[in-house]
Computed example of a mutant assay.
Amino acid sequence: MAQTGDDQPQEFPAQQQEPPGLTDEMQPVPDHGERSYQGHGRLAGLKALITGGDSGIGRAIAIAYAREGADVAISYLPEEKPDGEATAALVAEAGQRCVSLPADLTEHRACVDLMETAVGELGGLDILVNNAGYQMARSTGIEEISPEQLDRVMRTNLYALFWLTQAAVRHLKPGSCIINNSSIQAYDPSVSLLDYAATKAAINNFTVNLAAELGPRNIRVNAVAPGPIWTPLQPATQPVEKVKAFGQDTPLGRAGQPAEVAPAFVFLASPAEASYVSGTVLGVTGGKPVF
């Protein structure tokens, strides 16, 4: 099995799903920190919106934020409802409120409505985590990328990021923060993920640029760049042979688990621990360089 710590499997079982993929159909099921994450009140009393919060890295962030004392709103596609309900239950088990908000973020109106509902339900907003993302690996050249696929990748990974941030800024107070989910693909792009990798490089630029704009308002903007992390996106968007060897090309020799990424999002959200950290892209890559 793929686990955190010293267990370093040679490969994952052969498997594939239809996008967007579901957690319980994965072999093995990812570790989101359900048993391991222990909170210390770092985010007590804060309110966070996490896009793509139903599964993978988003679920791990939701669990960690709740155990650190934050109320959480999560968005996800309507077809991801089973994963969304499971995440909401885990947040509730931590004693915090979870607002579930199914939405298709490729539409501007949906992003604006999502933000207004999240702020209204939570009673404010302190942390925006732009985590939702989409990819689809290809086996041939650039000409295989259809207009429909390019539009979906750009709208999910970039347009939604802009739209949600625009809608959030007027609600964010001094001391609040925005955290974007970048990727090792911004630094070491895979040929099969040309369109996806391009959006992640753009997210890095967006992060640094927005940090400069919002710094005078004491709103911090950072990003996390994960390496190969075992989430439903992998068996749903990668060919079987890639899934089996997923993560083996890292210096640590294995894929990471969502639970290993969430602490980076906690650190960057913490008003005490990251109060002077802005305009930074923090790598969680299994040893792959981020520069």
Rank of each mutant, 00 (worst) to 15 (best):
I127C: 08
R152Y: 13
G286V: 07
V240K: 15
P78D: 12
L172I: 09
D151F: 00
Q10A: 14
G123M: 09
E18L: 12
K47Q: 15
L193T: 07
F265Y: 15
F246S: 00
M136V: 02
P189K: 12
V221A: 06
A201I: 03
D6T: 14
S139F: 12
A94I: 03
A48T: 14
P216L: 03
R217D: 06
S270W: 08
E121F: 04
Q10M: 10
L128F: 04
V153M: 05
V208G: 05
S139R: 15
L125R: 10
N204F: 11
A168P: 13
R220C: 04
G175M: 12
E241W: 01
T231M: 06
G58W: 00
Y159A: 09
Q10G: 10
I61R: 02
I179H: 08
I57A: 05
S270N: 10
L161M: 11
A255V: 10
R138M: 08
G287C: 09
P228F: 10
G33Q: 06
D6A: 09
D71L: 05
A86R: 11
H108M: 03
Y276P: 07
L150E: 02
V91A: 06
G56A: 04
F162R: 04
N204Y: 13
M1K: 12
P20H: 10
I179A: 09
